[in-house]
């Protein structure tokens, strides 16, 4: 049994009178790919926001490495090894690809005022390190030649890659991807699958929210199904595809969606 990196217990989020997420348990184990699926509005993105500290849970606890983190801010969660991408890409469009990645390397630079003003040796070293790291990642993701392009000049697919690269710059133990394949062609989806697998092979756990069933069924080791903010199933792709509740939520989903 592999180690549990992130453990969310009974987390709930309430917007006004509506439970966006209600009493959901999630475990993310080391080295696994965990899929989260569910109809639109099921609370998937909200759950990711809770797991990354962007949304305080109304109730429930989150543990990272056996320490409670429910009160931490998002940037502190990043420090503890949680990286993420967004459904609507959040990159700085006026900056270049490399500049965006350097921002992701923030935690691994010397950034005290004295180091910065004195341009110390260790400052130079860390700056050089994150630049190299950024280039290395861009090569790995096959967009090394775009390093100096502005984000606004990139295609959707390239932007998603850059966003994943920025998340990787924070050296996460767990990477949460919110619909990374939305709007992709079948060919692009296949490349994305390869990319996600290669990330996992570097020892990083991946939490994947995805609508494309083909992608999620082939990649995920385990899948959680959300509906109306509640977890209705949790199991291997095979178990999920045979689950009564899941089939009803998806097939009968239209009439109460």
């Amino acid at each position: 049994m592999s180690k549990i990196l992130v453990k969310a217990e009974q987390v709930s989020v309430k917007f006004g009178g509506l439970w966006a997420v209600k009493k959901v348990d999630v475990d993310v184990k080391a080295g696994e790919i965990l899929g989260i699926i569910g109809p639109n509005g099921a609370g998937k993105s909200t759950l990711l926001n809770v797991l990354t500290g962007l949304q305080r849970p109304s109730a429930g606890q989150i543990q990272i490495d056996n320490g409670y983190v429910s009160k931490k801010d998002a940037w502190q969660m990043v420090k503890m090894g949680i990286g993420r991408s967004f459904q609507t890409i959040r990159l700085l469009n006026e900056l270049t690809v490399i500049e965006n990645l350097l921002i992701g390397g923030h935690l691994y630079t010397k950034r005290g005022l004295l180091d910065v003003l004195g341009r110390t040796v260790r400052w130079r070293k860390t700056e050089q390190q994150i630049t190299n790291k950024a280039m290395e990642l861009l090569q790995l993701l096959g967009i090394g030649h775009k390093a100096q392009e502005e984000i606004s000049a990139l295609s959707l697919e390239e932007r998603r890659r850059v966003e994943i690269a920025r998340a990787l710059m924070t050296r996460p133990k767990v990477l949460l991807l919110d619909e990374p394949g939305a709007g992709f062609s079948p060919q692009e989806s296949d490349q994305l699958c390869e990319l996600i697998l290669s990330i996992r092979n570097r020892g990083i756990s991946v939490v994947l929210v995805e609508h494309n069933m083909k992608v999620i069924m082939s990649l995920a080791d385990r899948i959680i199904v959300l509906d109306h903010g509640q977890k209705i199933a949790d199991g291997t792709p095979k178990e999920i595809s045979e689950d009564e509740l899941v089939i009803r939520a998806y097939l009968g989903g239209e009439d109460h969606a």
């Binding site: 990043v78 959040r90 700085l92 923030h106 005022l113 910065v116």
Partner: peptide, 21 residues
């Protein structure tokens, strides 16, 4: 420096900044 990059990121998008640590 990293400080300036952090400021720039905050100016454009605070959530991006948050998830960049």
């Amino acid at each position: 420096s990293a400080i300036g990059r952090a400021w720039k990121c905050i100016r454009h998008d605070e959530i991006s900044a948050q998830v960049s640590g």
